[in-house]
Simulated scan of single mutants.
Amino acid sequence: MRFETTAANAAKPDANANAAVSPKPPTPRFAYPEKLCIYHAGTPRITFLACLKISTLFIFVFFGFVVSPAYFDREGLSPTVLRTTLSAIVPMVFVAYTTSPFVSFIHMRLPPVARQSEDMLRRFARAIPADAELDITTMSFIAKPRVSRVRLSELRPVSRRLGIVNLARDTTAQNAARKWYRFRAVGEFNAQFNTAKRAPWVWESVVGAIQKQRA
């Protein structure tokens, strides 16, 4: 009797363990990620622009805080001091003005149905909803990535800054809600040369949808 009782008690954990381990439903496999890169500016262009921004920052620091003060201590307020000061400020302002809208990447958030296959993604791209979310990555002044999450309905085709800016959105309400010490929201974008390899036709559909929203 003791042997039978011990054997029964020993068998109970195994039975409970088998009952606890239930078959898990198979994890659905998707052909595309949740955030699909639909726009890529190209690695050479991104690298060059990042190096240009950092180099301009070094030039500003060198001429503004090393060269100009040295000439000022030796000559006082002179044309040389003015030239060195302009050598620090002008490149920084020019690079900041012309490169701030540059878009490095654009990712689109896909619904599960659009991630299943290329055919389903093409169907989704042919009728992209207005509330589709885009994560647009630009560069800050120090070449740090800045991600702006926008809806497709917010973008408008424009031509500003001598053609540098081709997409824009209204950031008035967003900037009003931000603290004074925070950077202003990015409202102008330059996305013109797409080198995405996987699904570049999605970006073409997005551009077509934006063109239809021209105000």
Rank of each mutant, 00 (worst) to 15 (best):
F102G: 00
T27D: 13
I59M: 14
A88E: 09
P145L: 06
I142V: 12
V66P: 04
T172A: 11
R123N: 11
S100L: 02
P145H: 10
F3W: 10
P13H: 01
I54T: 04
R45V: 11
D73Y: 11
R2H: 08
A10K: 04
I136D: 06
V103Q: 08
R29Y: 04
A209H: 12
E75F: 12
A11T: 01
P25G: 04
A10L: 12
R184P: 03
A31N: 08
P101C: 02
A88W: 14
S22C: 05
F141N: 11
T138V: 06
K197E: 11
E118S: 15
R198E: 12
A215N: 09
G76N: 05
F30H: 14
D170S: 01
A17K: 14
T99F: 13
G163E: 02
L167I: 01
V113R: 14
S87H: 12
A127I: 09
Q213H: 07
I89N: 02
E75M: 06
H40C: 03
R178A: 05
A19E: 05
T43P: 00
M139V: 03
M120V: 07
N18I: 04
W180H: 10
A173M: 12
V113K: 13
S153L: 10
R169N: 03
S104P: 00
Q213F: 06
P26Q: 14
A177C: 03
A31P: 01
L110T: 08
V66M: 07
A8M: 11
Q213C: 00
G163M: 02
Q211R: 10
A8Q: 13
A20K: 09
F141Y: 13
K35M: 07
R198K: 15
Y71L: 15
L162M: 12
N194A: 04
D119M: 03
K179I: 07
G64F: 00
R182S: 12
V66C: 09
T98R: 13
Y32D: 01
H40A: 14
P111Y: 04
E204W: 04
V202R: 07
I106N: 08
R182Y: 15
A50Q: 09
F141M: 15
A20H: 07
S159W: 00
P23N: 12
V150N: 08
P28Q: 08
A177E: 14
A20L: 10
Q192T: 14
V186C: 13
F189A: 10
P25N: 06
G187P: 00
A173G: 08
L49W: 02
T99K: 06
N190K: 09
I142T: 15
I46N: 05
W201H: 12
A185V: 05
A215F: 01
H40D: 15
P26Y: 01
V207I: 15
K197R: 15
W180N: 12
N190L: 04
